[in-house]
Design a binder for these strands. Structure first.
Length: 103
DNA sequence: TGTGTGACGATCG
DNA sequence: GCGATCGCCACAC
């Protein structure tokens, strides 16, 4: 039962290019002014993990999601860094340089 | 159909 | 400045 809101969330996240990350808040707002929580829930229930790089979605603090650690937050951090994402500190994404804004 | 949950954010203390 | 609690809406059971 994919509502328009959920579908929009997937579309937004799927449009995040490599080397860039997006905050839950930003996605929530662009998805239709929903709550950032819903983004986490929706991504958790995502039906297309291949099209929805949840690891590119971080918290407003730039930190990696808590429950998504599919192998450890460090693993996500390493994967993101490999894509070109810049980090301010270990486990923290530099949103100033890697924040992505939907065109 | 209704209740509970949930990968966060913001505000209160 | 840090910790804890509330709120928000969609999805699963």
């Amino acid at each position: 039962m994919k509502s328009d809101t959920t579908e929009r969330v997937y579309d937004i996240v799927a449009k995040i290019p490599q080397g860039k990350v997006m905050t839950y808040k930003a996605v929530a707002v662009k998805a239709g002014r929903i709550n950032p929580r819903l983004v986490g829930v929706i991504l958790h229930q995502n039906s297309d993990p291949q099209k929805v790089p949840c690891h590119r979605v971080v918290r407003s603090d730039g930190k990696i999601a808590n429950g998504y650690a599919f192998g450890g937050k460090v693993a996500q951090l390493t994967r993101l860094r490999k894509e070109g994402v810049v980090f301010s500190n270990a486990g923290t994404v530099d949103l100033v340089k890697s924040s992505w804004n939907v065109a």
